Computed example of a mutant assay.
Amino acid sequence: MIRRIAVLGFGLAALTVVLDRATKLWALDALFEPPARITVTGVLNLVPVWNRGVSFGLLSNDSAWGPWLLGGFAVAVAVALVVWLLRAENPVLGAGLGLVIGGAVGNAIDRALYGAVVDFIDAHWGDLHWPAFNIADAAITLGVGLLLLDAFGIGTGARASERGRTGDG
């Protein structure tokens, strides 16, 4: 039987993929053809960006095998995280894993369909711009934050130093 924590994680993963796909399909229609910039607020724009690398455009390349290698890696990571999720024992860990899984799958779908990831959210302060990102990237970032909270025992009901003890000390 699947634990409630795993159900939470899988639900967040599915929600992330659905929201990510919906927003990317909208962005492809509204921003990419023809290229357009939409100012949302003084610190947020929507812009068309094809990301051929990993997070924030790192390791960007135009090789034919790049998208398959990066997409395959994302799927492998997602599978490993699913195994971890099935063993998760608290909701903070389950939610964090679910968000990272959903984000990894969302971006892997882009690599399979387009050979690059659709990024379109441009956060900035004056002339300082954060690299463009998408809902999947935001979910991965939030998920990693939750994994860190879990690692330090914050919000899980146990301190990290206590979770590794066997009770014989």
Rank of each mutant, 00 (worst) to 15 (best):
M1P: 11
I2G: 01
I2T: 06
I2P: 14
R4T: 03
I5A: 06
A6W: 03
L8H: 04
L8Y: 05
F10G: 11
G11D: 00
A14I: 09
V17R: 02
V18Q: 01
R21S: 05
R21I: 05
T23Y: 08
K24I: 01
K24E: 01
K24S: 04
L25V: 08
L25N: 04
W26R: 05
L28M: 07
L28I: 02
A30M: 12
P34V: 10
P35K: 14
A36Y: 04
R37P: 08
V40G: 14
G42D: 15
G42P: 09
L46K: 11
P48M: 05
P48F: 06
N51W: 12
R52S: 15
R52N: 09
G53Y: 10
G53V: 08
G53K: 13
V54R: 06
L58V: 04
L59E: 04
D62G: 13
S63L: 13
A64W: 15
P67Y: 05
P67E: 08
W68H: 15
G71Q: 13
A74K: 15
V75Y: 09
A80C: 12
V82I: 15
L86D: 09
A95F: 11
A95V: 08
G98T: 13
L99R: 13
I101Y: 07
I101P: 14
N107L: 06
N107D: 05
I109M: 07
D110N: 08
R111N: 08
L113A: 09
Y114V: 00
Y114E: 05
G115S: 04
A116M: 00
A116W: 07
A116Y: 07
V118E: 00
D122P: 08
D122A: 02
D122R: 06
A123R: 01
H124Y: 12
W125I: 06
G126W: 00
D127K: 01
L128A: 03
H129R: 14
W130P: 00
A132D: 01
A139M: 03
I140W: 10
I140Y: 07
L146I: 02
L147K: 10
L147E: 04
L149T: 03
A151L: 13
F152Y: 13
G153L: 04
I154H: 10
I154M: 11
T156L: 09
T156V: 10
A160I: 01
S161I: 09
R165D: 10
